[in-house]
Nucleic acid binder design. Structure first.
Length: 277
DNA sequence: ACGAGGTCCTGCGAGC
DNA sequence: TGCTCGCAGGACCTCG
Protein backbone atom coordinates (compact mmCIF):
# COMPACT_ATOMS: atom_id res chain seq x y z
CA UNK A 1 0.00 0.00 0.00
CA UNK A 2 1.93 2.96 -1.23
CA UNK A 3 2.50 5.54 1.48
CA UNK A 4 5.07 8.32 1.34
CA UNK A 5 8.21 6.13 1.09
CA UNK A 6 6.72 3.94 -1.62
CA UNK A 7 5.52 6.89 -3.71
CA UNK A 8 8.86 8.66 -3.20
CA UNK A 9 10.62 5.55 -4.51
CA UNK A 10 8.31 5.37 -7.51
CA UNK A 11 8.87 9.04 -8.31
CA UNK A 12 12.66 8.80 -8.03
CA UNK A 13 12.70 5.93 -10.50
CA UNK A 14 10.17 7.43 -12.89
CA UNK A 15 11.78 10.87 -13.04
CA UNK A 16 14.88 10.04 -15.15
CA UNK A 17 12.79 7.78 -17.38
CA UNK A 18 9.94 10.21 -18.04
CA UNK A 19 11.14 13.80 -17.90
CA UNK A 20 11.53 15.23 -21.39
CA UNK A 21 9.51 12.43 -22.99
CA UNK A 22 6.42 13.04 -25.07
CA UNK A 23 3.31 10.90 -24.80
CA UNK A 24 2.68 9.45 -28.22
CA UNK A 25 -0.23 7.20 -27.45
CA UNK A 26 -2.26 7.29 -24.23
CA UNK A 27 -4.79 4.54 -23.53
CA UNK A 28 -7.34 4.31 -20.74
CA UNK A 29 -8.83 0.93 -19.84
CA UNK A 30 -11.07 1.91 -16.92
CA UNK A 31 -12.98 5.13 -16.44
CA UNK A 32 -14.09 4.67 -12.82
CA UNK A 33 -10.69 5.86 -11.61
CA UNK A 34 -11.14 9.30 -13.18
CA UNK A 35 -11.92 12.27 -10.95
CA UNK A 36 -13.04 15.58 -12.34
CA UNK A 37 -12.03 14.74 -15.89
CA UNK A 38 -13.62 12.84 -18.73
CA UNK A 39 -11.92 10.06 -20.62
CA UNK A 40 -11.86 12.13 -23.78
CA UNK A 41 -10.32 15.20 -22.18
CA UNK A 42 -7.65 13.20 -20.33
CA UNK A 43 -6.57 11.36 -23.47
CA UNK A 44 -6.67 14.49 -25.61
CA UNK A 45 -4.54 16.37 -23.08
CA UNK A 46 -1.98 13.61 -22.76
CA UNK A 47 -1.59 13.01 -26.48
CA UNK A 48 1.56 14.70 -27.85
CA UNK A 49 2.09 16.43 -24.51
CA UNK A 50 5.56 16.41 -22.97
CA UNK A 51 6.30 15.42 -19.36
CA UNK A 52 8.39 18.21 -17.84
CA UNK A 53 8.40 17.19 -14.16
CA UNK A 54 7.74 14.12 -12.02
CA UNK A 55 7.08 14.88 -8.36
CA UNK A 56 5.54 13.48 -5.23
CA UNK A 57 2.97 15.19 -3.03
CA UNK A 58 1.85 13.17 0.01
CA UNK A 59 1.01 9.75 -1.48
CA UNK A 60 0.35 11.08 -4.98
CA UNK A 61 2.49 10.94 -8.11
CA UNK A 62 2.34 14.25 -9.97
CA UNK A 63 3.22 14.41 -13.68
CA UNK A 64 3.52 17.99 -14.85
CA UNK A 65 3.00 18.46 -18.57
CA UNK A 66 4.35 21.09 -20.94
CA UNK A 67 0.80 22.42 -21.33
CA UNK A 68 0.76 23.33 -17.63
CA UNK A 69 -1.62 20.51 -16.72
CA UNK A 70 -0.83 18.02 -14.00
CA UNK A 71 -1.84 14.39 -14.03
CA UNK A 72 -2.16 13.34 -10.39
CA UNK A 73 -2.22 9.62 -9.70
CA UNK A 74 -3.02 8.12 -6.32
CA UNK A 75 -2.05 4.44 -6.26
CA UNK A 76 -3.94 3.88 -2.99
CA UNK A 77 -4.02 0.22 -2.02
CA UNK A 78 -2.98 -1.83 -4.99
CA UNK A 79 -1.87 0.63 -7.63
CA UNK A 80 1.55 0.55 -9.24
CA UNK A 81 3.27 2.89 -11.69
CA UNK A 82 5.99 1.28 -13.74
CA UNK A 83 8.04 2.33 -16.78
CA UNK A 84 8.84 -0.50 -19.16
CA UNK A 85 11.32 -0.46 -22.00
CA UNK A 86 9.89 -3.53 -23.68
CA UNK A 87 6.65 -5.13 -24.74
CA UNK A 88 4.54 -6.40 -21.85
CA UNK A 89 3.66 -10.04 -21.31
CA UNK A 90 -0.05 -10.88 -21.32
CA UNK A 91 -0.08 -11.41 -17.54
CA UNK A 92 1.55 -8.00 -17.10
CA UNK A 93 -1.28 -6.44 -19.09
CA UNK A 94 -3.92 -7.54 -16.56
CA UNK A 95 -5.41 -4.76 -14.45
CA UNK A 96 -3.87 -1.95 -16.48
CA UNK A 97 -5.86 1.23 -15.94
CA UNK A 98 -3.81 3.76 -17.89
CA UNK A 99 -0.83 3.42 -20.18
CA UNK A 100 1.14 6.09 -21.97
CA UNK A 101 3.46 5.16 -24.79
CA UNK A 102 6.51 7.41 -24.87
CA UNK A 103 8.14 6.53 -28.14
CA UNK A 104 10.09 3.41 -29.00
CA UNK A 105 9.27 0.59 -26.61
CA UNK A 106 9.04 2.86 -23.60
CA UNK A 107 5.68 2.93 -21.86
CA UNK A 108 4.39 4.20 -18.52
CA UNK A 109 1.82 1.83 -17.03
CA UNK A 110 -0.59 2.49 -14.16
CA UNK A 111 -1.89 -0.85 -12.97
CA UNK A 112 -4.42 -1.22 -10.15
CA UNK A 113 -6.05 -4.53 -9.23
CA UNK A 114 -8.73 -3.09 -6.98
CA UNK A 115 -9.08 0.20 -8.79
CA UNK A 116 -9.33 2.18 -5.58
CA UNK A 117 -6.67 4.43 -7.05
CA UNK A 118 -7.60 7.69 -8.73
CA UNK A 119 -6.45 9.82 -11.65
CA UNK A 120 -6.94 13.58 -11.71
CA UNK A 121 -6.19 16.11 -14.43
CA UNK A 122 -5.68 19.56 -12.99
CA UNK A 123 -4.81 22.95 -14.39
CA UNK A 124 -2.70 25.41 -12.43
CA UNK A 125 -5.59 26.71 -10.32
CA UNK A 126 -6.96 23.24 -9.74
CA UNK A 127 -3.57 22.06 -8.55
CA UNK A 128 -3.21 24.95 -6.14
CA UNK A 129 -6.49 24.16 -4.42
CA UNK A 130 -5.75 20.43 -4.50
CA UNK A 131 -2.38 20.72 -2.79
CA UNK A 132 -3.67 23.33 -0.34
CA UNK A 133 -5.99 20.75 1.20
CA UNK A 134 -3.06 18.49 2.11
CA UNK A 135 -0.89 18.97 5.20
CA UNK A 136 2.85 19.68 5.29
CA UNK A 137 5.43 17.23 3.98
CA UNK A 138 7.13 15.55 6.95
CA UNK A 139 10.44 15.10 5.11
CA UNK A 140 10.65 18.74 4.09
CA UNK A 141 13.57 20.62 5.64
CA UNK A 142 11.28 22.98 7.54
CA UNK A 143 9.17 20.28 9.19
CA UNK A 144 10.56 20.89 12.65
CA UNK A 145 9.12 20.10 16.05
CA UNK A 146 7.07 23.29 16.11
CA UNK A 147 5.41 22.45 12.79
CA UNK A 148 4.73 18.92 13.98
CA UNK A 149 3.17 20.24 17.17
CA UNK A 150 0.94 22.49 15.08
CA UNK A 151 -0.30 19.44 13.17
CA UNK A 152 -1.47 17.83 16.41
CA UNK A 153 -3.05 20.94 17.88
CA UNK A 154 -6.73 21.31 18.59
CA UNK A 155 -7.96 17.75 18.34
CA UNK A 156 -8.73 15.08 20.86
CA UNK A 157 -8.72 12.34 18.24
CA UNK A 158 -6.43 9.37 18.75
CA UNK A 159 -2.87 10.28 17.82
CA UNK A 160 -2.72 7.43 15.31
CA UNK A 161 -5.75 8.72 13.44
CA UNK A 162 -4.27 12.22 13.43
CA UNK A 163 -0.95 10.97 12.03
CA UNK A 164 -2.86 9.36 9.17
CA UNK A 165 -5.04 12.41 8.48
CA UNK A 166 -3.69 13.76 5.19
CA UNK A 167 -5.07 17.22 5.91
CA UNK A 168 -2.79 17.41 8.95
CA UNK A 169 0.36 15.57 7.81
CA UNK A 170 1.09 14.36 4.30
CA UNK A 171 1.96 10.81 3.41
CA UNK A 172 1.73 8.79 6.61
CA UNK A 173 -0.49 5.71 6.31
CA UNK A 174 -1.23 2.73 8.48
CA UNK A 175 2.11 0.96 8.26
CA UNK A 176 4.30 3.92 9.16
CA UNK A 177 1.89 5.31 11.75
CA UNK A 178 2.14 2.00 13.60
CA UNK A 179 5.91 1.92 13.25
CA UNK A 180 6.47 5.51 14.36
CA UNK A 181 4.23 5.19 17.41
CA UNK A 182 6.03 2.04 18.45
CA UNK A 183 9.45 3.62 17.99
CA UNK A 184 8.39 6.66 20.01
CA UNK A 185 6.74 4.50 22.69
CA UNK A 186 3.46 6.36 22.34
CA UNK A 187 0.05 4.81 22.95
CA UNK A 188 -1.78 4.92 19.56
CA UNK A 189 -5.11 5.67 21.24
CA UNK A 190 -3.83 8.68 23.20
CA UNK A 191 -5.75 11.86 22.27
CA UNK A 192 -3.42 13.99 20.17
CA UNK A 193 -3.71 17.00 22.46
CA UNK A 194 -2.62 14.93 25.45
CA UNK A 195 0.89 14.06 24.29
CA UNK A 196 3.51 15.36 26.66
CA UNK A 197 6.20 17.60 25.15
CA UNK A 198 8.67 14.72 25.52
CA UNK A 199 6.37 12.25 23.80
CA UNK A 200 5.74 14.77 21.01
CA UNK A 201 9.48 15.21 20.54
CA UNK A 202 10.02 11.45 20.38
CA UNK A 203 7.16 11.02 17.93
CA UNK A 204 8.42 13.79 15.67
CA UNK A 205 11.83 12.14 15.53
CA UNK A 206 10.27 8.71 15.03
CA UNK A 207 8.06 9.80 12.12
CA UNK A 208 11.09 11.26 10.34
CA UNK A 209 13.42 8.33 10.99
CA UNK A 210 10.83 5.68 10.11
CA UNK A 211 10.01 7.41 6.81
CA UNK A 212 13.67 8.01 5.94
CA UNK A 213 14.63 4.40 6.61
CA UNK A 214 11.72 3.15 4.52
CA UNK A 215 12.75 5.43 1.64
CA UNK A 216 16.30 4.07 1.92
CA UNK A 217 14.82 0.57 1.63
CA UNK A 218 12.73 1.65 -1.38
CA UNK A 219 9.49 0.98 0.47
CA UNK A 220 7.59 -1.94 1.95
CA UNK A 221 6.30 -4.69 -0.34
CA UNK A 222 3.72 -6.85 1.41
CA UNK A 223 1.81 -7.89 -1.67
CA UNK A 224 1.13 -5.41 -4.45
CA UNK A 225 3.58 -2.56 -4.12
CA UNK A 226 6.27 -2.33 -6.78
CA UNK A 227 8.87 0.35 -7.38
CA UNK A 228 8.89 2.45 -10.56
CA UNK A 229 10.92 -0.25 -12.26
CA UNK A 230 8.68 -3.10 -11.13
CA UNK A 231 10.84 -4.38 -8.30
CA UNK A 232 9.98 -5.21 -4.69
CA UNK A 233 10.82 -2.86 -1.85
CA UNK A 234 13.05 -4.12 0.95
CA UNK A 235 11.60 -2.50 4.06
CA UNK A 236 9.15 -5.30 4.95
CA UNK A 237 11.82 -7.19 6.88
CA UNK A 238 12.55 -4.08 8.95
CA UNK A 239 9.01 -3.61 10.28
CA UNK A 240 8.88 -3.75 14.07
CA UNK A 241 5.13 -4.00 14.62
CA UNK A 242 3.04 -3.86 11.45
CA UNK A 243 1.86 -7.38 10.64
CA UNK A 244 3.53 -8.77 13.76
CA UNK A 245 0.49 -9.05 16.05
CA UNK A 246 0.93 -11.93 18.51
CA UNK A 247 4.69 -11.97 18.00
CA UNK A 248 7.12 -10.75 20.66
CA UNK A 249 8.00 -7.08 21.05
CA UNK A 250 11.55 -6.55 19.83
CA UNK A 251 12.30 -4.43 22.91
CA UNK A 252 10.72 -6.32 25.79
CA UNK A 253 9.39 -9.63 24.48
CA UNK A 254 5.76 -8.92 25.37
CA UNK A 255 3.29 -10.30 22.84
CA UNK A 256 2.26 -7.49 20.48
CA UNK A 257 -1.43 -6.60 20.46
CA UNK A 258 -3.54 -5.94 17.36
CA UNK A 259 -6.81 -4.03 17.65
CA UNK A 260 -9.20 -2.39 15.22
CA UNK A 261 -10.45 0.11 17.77
CA UNK A 262 -8.97 3.19 16.07
CA UNK A 263 -10.85 4.12 12.90
CA UNK A 264 -11.45 0.44 12.15
CA UNK A 265 -7.85 -0.07 10.98
CA UNK A 266 -5.37 -2.63 12.20
CA UNK A 267 -3.27 -1.17 15.00
CA UNK A 268 -0.41 -3.26 16.36
CA UNK A 269 1.45 -2.09 19.43
CA UNK A 270 3.22 -3.21 22.58
CA UNK A 271 1.00 -2.93 25.61
CA UNK A 272 4.01 -2.60 27.86
CA UNK A 273 6.31 -0.27 25.89
CA UNK A 274 3.60 2.06 24.62
CA UNK A 275 2.01 3.14 27.86
CA UNK A 276 0.45 6.54 28.34
CA UNK A 277 3.09 9.18 28.89
C1' DA B 1 -15.87 18.29 17.04
C1' DC B 2 -16.24 13.66 17.25
C1' DG B 3 -17.24 8.67 16.46
C1' DA B 4 -19.54 5.25 13.84
C1' DG B 5 -20.46 3.33 9.79
C1' DG B 6 -21.02 3.03 4.60
C1' DT B 7 -18.81 3.19 -0.06
C1' DC B 8 -15.56 1.91 -3.61
C1' DC B 9 -12.95 -2.43 -5.51
C1' DT B 10 -10.92 -7.53 -6.19
C1' DG B 11 -8.07 -11.26 -4.39
C1' DC B 12 -7.28 -14.25 -0.90
C1' DG B 13 -7.64 -17.27 2.96
C1' DA B 14 -10.56 -19.26 6.48
C1' DG B 15 -14.34 -22.03 7.45
C1' DC B 16 -17.88 -25.23 6.35
C1' DT C 1 -13.55 -29.74 -3.99
C1' DG C 2 -16.27 -25.76 -4.14
C1' DC C 3 -18.81 -22.44 -2.09
C1' DT C 4 -19.62 -18.16 0.93
C1' DC C 5 -17.93 -14.70 3.70
C1' DG C 6 -15.00 -11.41 5.90
C1' DC C 7 -11.03 -8.88 5.50
C1' DA C 8 -7.34 -6.00 3.49
C1' DG C 9 -7.75 -0.13 3.93
C1' DG C 10 -7.09 5.07 1.96
C1' DA C 11 -10.02 8.72 1.12
C1' DC C 12 -14.33 10.31 1.06
C1' DC C 13 -19.09 10.57 2.50
C1' DT C 14 -23.37 10.87 5.69
C1' DC C 15 -25.56 10.61 10.08
C1' DG C 16 -26.30 11.30 14.98
Amino acid sequence: MPELPEVETIVRELRPRLVGRTVTRPRLHATDVLRGVSRGRLLATLRTNRIVEVARRAKHVVLRLASGHRVVIQPRMTGSLIVYGRRLRPDERRYIVLEASLGGQRVLVFRDVRRLGTVWLLDEAGWRSYTARIGPEPLAADFDLARFAACLRGTRQAIKKVLMDQRRIAGVGNIYANEALYRARVDPSLPADQLSPRARRRLHAAVLSVLREAVAHRGTTLRDYRTGTGEHGEHQTALAVYGRGGEPCLRCGTRLTTTHAIDGRATTFCYRCQGRT
